[in-house]
Design a protein around this nucleic acid. Sequence first.
DNA 1: CCTAAATACTACGCACTCTAATCATCTCTA
DNA 2: TAGAGATGATTAGAGTGCGTAGTATTTAGG
Lengths: 164, 164
Amino acid sequence: MATSTRVDSVSIPSVSELPHWQEVRAPHGLGYRIRLMAQLMSRLFQEKLDPYDLTPFHWVVLCCLWEQDGQATSHICEKLKQVGGTLTGVIDRMEERNLVRRERDPHDRRIWRIWLTETGRELETVLPPLALEVREVAFAGITEAEQKLVSDVVDRAIANLAHP
Amino acid sequence: MATSTRVDSVSIPSVSELPHWQEVRAPHGLGYRIRLMAQLMSRLFQEKLDPYDLTPFHWVVLCCLWEQDGQATSHICEKLKQVGGTLTGVIDRMEERNLVRRERDPHDRRIWRIWLTETGRELETVLPPLALEVREVAFAGITEAEQKLVSDVVDRAIANLAHP
DNA sequence: CCTAAATACTACGCACTCTAATCATCTCTA
DNA sequence: TAGAGATGATTAGAGTGCGTAGTATTTAGG
């Protein structure tokens, strides 16, 4: 512990004393591997969505709207922690595919509310099982206790990163 | 456990009996949250890389080359589990920034080998501490035992997804 | 040898992602 | 009640990321 530095209440070890599993360099670093895991899940999910001409992002927006229809664009951004500019393009393409439609809020004309079409609503019976399939592949052989702990750690990490 | 289905050796519960923490729908689903965690880490890392006009992907390729210089494009793809077409563009931009240069393999002229420039090599003393900073923010307050378990689960998930 | 298949990479089109700049609308205050 | 500032959303431009198709180059089979 000769070369540690103490900042606030967090002990930061020097790189040389990090054990192997927490080396920061890609592709061994945990950061890269978490990113890769998410990427591989996306690839698999995309395969399952291909027949419907949808993308994983469309799924995510649909989930928001199934929970509550007619949300403002900014509400969806907030819920998903996505950047506004990104959503504009995604919703454009969802509108082209007739999954949603935009409508101005009558009380505040700055706000555009996003509403499900019949097509968009009907997908609620089709898509969740596909998402579950991806989950089952990814977490095969991983116990519920382990999944619970990962879920917990992920939530804390997101909170750490939300306002660093 | 009335509505479970048994397929091979994996028990697949129906959606209705899933506990809250493993609901599949975004943004509550673990899949989305893992993706979000990776995304937030990337955003923070990008901020730290801005002064150097680099991106997280450049970091990743540099890590590969620091480990072994002069690798074939396909070796880098394999190590990073990335798609070939993606690497072409990234390496183009790295070449423009004078981080690497391409050279044909004299024994097999189909192969392009990627070599670090002096600039690319010198960044090895600068960038790893930045990556470590991101890690420290993300995993603040998370014990080493918890990190070890997450690392472990992530590896198993990647293996599950590699050839599904 | 000489052609067919395999290999390494590039080109292109579409989709996502980010930042910064812009536009429209609303709100608050002098 | 004008005008300044805040807010909601879009646009523009660069950089991933993926699949498909295409170009060299090498290897293998006859």
